[in-house]
């Protein structure tokens, strides 16, 4: 880091910088800071949305600790994130490596992004139809190959993995593109020397590509994990938390509490708890992966 005292000309630049930041700051204050502060206040109240909030101290939080549904929602969400981020990152890495080493076709890159461009609700509906037990194309294929048709969104075993894989399908292309951009930063001479030393593609991937990708990979992991925790629309469209709560992820639970059951105060408390959990996770992840430093000396 540069810690020299700044020349006076740069002080003017700082002013200009603030000026440029102003629109963003207004938006941030209006749409993030203010609602967050209000949410925090509501988490200490009994608020039905239809009457004025009443201060109840930490009662919501005390209830939250003993709420089996809340813990179940956290467990479901964690399982979802593991399935989703695991499959998505692995697939994206393979795709990015293929793009990097095999083809640089713009067509291929553009095609990878197509699922990501489709709105999430449409993605949910699309797969809801495709995977339908009676009328879906996928089950039609499976049964014509001699398999058994299954309602993937209604089966307690399959519902959560299905939701996770649907979102993997939607986001892998985007993640792959980010990783691919990261791979492009690796200087070409490293690959040349690896080739001269007789390293094969697999070896090159594990000793050159992957280690140098670490900071980018860390960033992608953190952002996609936070995104993954926010899973809501796919669940809301396909399973609505069912069957018997196996896909009731935390955001859907909070939404139900707030807007279906009119317990806004309680929902706000669950939201605050989620912020704390996510904050801790991100901190740990960034520390473990040393995201701010590169190995490229």
């Amino acid at each position: 880091m540069d810690s020299r005292p700044r020349p006076p000309a740069q002080r003017g630049a700082a002013r200009a910088a603030w000026l440029f930041l102003l629109p963003v700051l207004v938006g941030f204050g209006l749409f993030y800071l203010y609602p967050a502060a209000r949410g925090l206040w509501w988490s200490f109240t009994d608020y039905s949305l239809l009457a004025e909030p009443e201060f109840t101290g930490t009662q919501n939080y005390a209830e939250l600790v003993g709420d089996a549904q809340f813990w179940n929602a956290l467990k479901v969400t964690a399982l979802y994130v593991v399935l989703n981020i695991g499959s998505q990152t692995l697939l994206a890495l393979v795709l990015a490596a293929l793009m990097h080493r095999l083809t640089r076709s713009v067509m291929v890159r553009a095609m990878l992004l197509v699922p990501w461009l489709v709105p999430n609700v449409t993605v949910g509906l699309l797969w809801l139809w495709l995977l339908d037990a009676d009328l879906g194309f996928v089950n039609h294929l499976i049964s014509s190959l001699g398999g058994e048709s299954t309602a993937y969104f209604a089966s307690p075993t399959w519902a959560l993995p299905t939701v996770a894989l649907v979102n993997t399908w939607a986001y892998t292309g985007y993640t792959a593109l980010l990783l691919y951009a990261g791979m492009l930063q690796t200087p070409g001479y490293l690959y040349e020397s690896a080739a001269i030393d007789g390293a094969g593609e697999t070896r090159t991937f594990f000793t050159v590509t992957l280690p140098l990708l670490r900071p980018v990979l860390a960033l992608v992991l953190v952002t996609s994990m936070i995104g993954s925790f926010q899973i809501f629309d796919t669940v809301a469209v396909t399973t609505e938390g069912g069957p018997v709560n196996v896909t009731k992820v935390i955001y859907f639970y909070i939404y139900q509490k707030a807007f279906h059951q009119f317990e806004m105060g309680y929902a706000a408390a669950a939201g605050v708890a989620l912020v704390a959990i996510l904050g801790a996770l991100v901190y740990v992840q960034l520390r473990l992966l040393k995201a701010s430093s590169s190995d490229l000396g």
Binding site: D134, L135, A151, A154, P243
Partner: peptide, 12 residues
Amino acid sequence: FDKQSTLGRDAV
């Protein structure tokens, strides 16, 4: 239950 269409009985 886990082989039911999610598209509603009228669709089936």
